[in-house]
Every structure is written in structure tokens, then in C-alpha cells.
Design a binder for these strands. Structure first.
Lengths: 208, 208
DNA sequence: GCCTGTGAAGCTATTCACAGCT
DNA sequence: AGCTGTGAATAGCTTCACAGGC
């Protein structure tokens, strides 16, 4: 399959989640207009995204809900599931754990790491916690390819390097720094204070 | 001033934060190449962003660090500071409070709201907590224009409407739904599971 | 009539490349 | 030489608009 942009991948993830509403309503089909409404996008955008991943729709009926969910799954999900490492179990790390627990069975936070001796060797929401020194061993043993960085800014770069050295190729970074990683590692930055400052700016000056 | 894009605003916020490093190093000037390195962008991008907000640089010397911080501040910061409301003090809400506490003196989380009677009338990190029913009164009284939504998906839309009705014009939304708000309200979505799925996808297929 | 699929157009954001300053 | 400031070029993304099918 041709390369798919990160924006499209993100929207597919969103579409799949929104489709649960239609399943709950026992709807069999959905049209691009309805999905666009929920996703706050345009119908043309939805159709193009679905076209890119080869989701077939039927003129005048729309898309088959179950087929859509399944097809998006074959694109987004690793066939045998994907284990994720979480580094840092402060408030933010615990929030992420809670939030992800039992949500996407395909993505499992299979290992957590921290430097606090109080937390090491305990489990949080069923997820075992090791010392960060164990990152090389545990990440490699479990074939983990995705990491979540929820540590203070000062430690983020070192953690990123440890994860990448152990085989991680995708990072979700909550630390307010930009990580220096090789080109073959994909990073998504979730910069809370940047986003809040952006929201505050446009609250004053408007979007239009 | 002409309209500035959200991407540029976000990067300005990042640049300002990164400039602290140069202040700490007692550096007086910085060039676009150095700032780009830290922000993981290109020098041309940095120069254009700074040009857009009228930050002057000097050929062969670069930009004056202190002047840059001040100028970015006049763009991003409300002259008399900005109060922010936080709705939902679960793990995520507390993480955001901790994270923002004392970071940007200009943006203060001045009011928190929750539905848990255990939390109401307590303070978290110096931030008083009310019942969500008090949103209309408190938000209006304090002139709050920015809101952070850290509640479960099912409640997010109702909270957004309450905030907007009370005068909020900028939202930072952590709930995994897309909010339906008027055009004059700016929303930044921080969708954790979407971002994680995106990171997981590119961990498998690569960015290139 | 309603909806998909998609080439083409349009728009926005980023990068190039170079004139001009120190 | 080194760096800014910026018009022009490019790349990437979104929307239009309409042919085609039910």
C-alpha cells in the first residue's frame, strides 16, 4: 500500500472510535456526511481518507459500519497486537494508563518504568513497573516497539535514547522538549503548555 | 497585526520555552539555526515565524535573546494575565495542574470543577475546586476565557457548552470526542489514543 | 434523489535561494 | 564569512465538483 500521511492515520483512528456510536445504535451503514459531522470534518475528507485505505462504499447507501471498522483495523492494528512501554508513572503516566486500560485491546501497555523505588515492583492497573535501568532488557524481551514518555523534561532525552536503543520506533512524548531521535523513529509530541498557550491566544484574537 | 496561524503560535510558545536554555547559559544572542536545532525545525521556518511577529534580528549576529522573549510575550500573553478553568480533577486534571503550576505565571488555573463531592471545596495545588454546577457563576465572575476539559467522553460536550455559555472562547480538550462549539470558539484536541495509534502505526511502517 | 469515487483546483505551510547587511 | 529578511517555488493537504452507480 502507498504511504499514508499521519493526518489520515490519526483520522482513521478517530473514525473507528466514532463508529462505536453507530454500532450501539444498531446501524448497519453510515454515510460520509454523518461521519464527518461526528469527526468535525468534511464529507469529502472522510471519503478521501477511506478511499486511501481502500474502504469501499456503496452509492446512495454509504459504508458498511462493521466492514469499515474491520478494514480500518487491518490498517491500524498490528496483526498480533502491539505492546507499549510507559516511562514515568506520575499523575500523567497514571492518567494515560487509566485512559488506555481496556480501551484498545490491540494496544497494551505491557511494561511501565519509573525511578521511584516506591513504585518499582508494584503493578499499576495490572501493568508491572520496573526500574528505568531495566528498559534495555524488558523492552527487548517483550518486543516492544512503541513508547510513551511521561517523565520530566530533563530526563526525556535520555529515556528516548534508551527506548530507541532497545528497539522502540514510535514515541508518544509528553515532555515539553523536542526529542533528538534517528529518522526511522516516529515521534508524536503532546505539548500541553504549548497547546494551552495556543488556545489562550485564539481565545483572545479569534480563529476567523 | 495580520492573522497568525495556529502552527506559528504553537512554535512561538515552544521557542520562548527553549530560549530559557540560552538565558541559563548567559547567552545574549541566538541564531535561527540554533533555535531550529532545539525546536527540531528548519532555520528558514524559525526566521519566518519570527518575521511574522516582527522580531528583528541582526545580520551576522542573530537575535537578541531577551528581546525575543519579550516580543513573543507581547504576542502570546494577555497584558493582565489570563485565568483558566480546569474541569475534571482525575489523574489527568491533576497532572495538568501539577504541570502548569508555576510554569507560566501569565496563565493561571484559577478555578477547578468536578462532580465528586470529595473534591468539591478542597484546593488542589492552590487551585480551589467547585461543583460543575458553579461553572456559570465562577467562570463569569472571574472573567475566564480559557477552559481545559479533562472529563470522561460522555460529559465533555455538556461541559464545553457550559463553559462557552459562561464566556470561554478557547478550549483544550482531552476527551476523546470532537466538540460541537460555535465558530468563535477555538478548540485544541489532545487525543491521547489517537496519537498513540498514530505512533504505533508509524513504528511499524516507518515515516519515510 | 442520494451517495460514492476521484481528477483537478485551490489553499496553506514549508523550504529554497539569494540580495543585503555587518 | 555569517546571518537575516523575504519573494518565489514547492510540497502537502483539503475541498470542489461532477461522472457514475443504486
Amino acid at each position: 500500500m502507498a504511504a499514508i500521511s499521519d493526518k489520515t492515520i490519526g483520522r482513521l483512528s478517530l473514525y473507528r472510535r466514532l463508529l462505536a456510536v453507530f454500532i450501539a445504535d444498531d446501524r448497519d451503514t453510515v454515510c460520509s456526511r454523518e461521519l464527518a459531522e461526528l469527526a468535525r470534518g468534511t464529507p469529502a475528507q472522510v471519503r478521501r481518507d477511506l478511499m486511501i485505505v481502500g474502504c469501499p462504499g456503496r452509492p446512495s447507501q454509504g459504508y458498511d459500519v462493521r466492514q469499515l471498522i474491520e478494514r480500518i483495523g487491518t490498517v491500524l492494528d498490528a496483526p498480533d497486537g502491539e505492546n507499549v512501554a510507559l516511562v514515568g508513572i506520575g499523575n500523567l503516566g497514571r492518567a494515560v494508563l487509566t485512559y488506555l486500560a481496556g480501551r484498545r485491546p490491540n494496544l497494551t501497555v505491557a511494561a511501565a518504568f519509573d525511578i521511584d523505588p516506591q513504585k518499582i515492583n508494584h503493578a499499576f492497573r495490572g501493568c508491572p513497573c520496573w526500574s528505568v535501568e531495566q528498559i534495555p532488557r524488558v523492552v527487548r524481551e517483550r518486543g516492544i516497539r512503541v513508547g510513551i514518555i511521561a517523565v520530566p523534561a530533563a530526563n526525556a532525552q535520555a529515556i528516548a535514547e534508551a527506548l530507541v536503543a532497545a528497539g522502540v520506533r514510535g514515541l508518544l512524548n509528553f515532555a515539553p522538549v523536542r526529542l533528538h531521535v534517528p529518522d526511522n523513529v516516529f515521534t508524536v509530541d503532546m505539548d500541553i503548555s504549548m497547546s494551552l498557550e495556543t488556545a489562550a491566544y485564539f481565545a483572545r484574537f479569534g480563529n476567523a
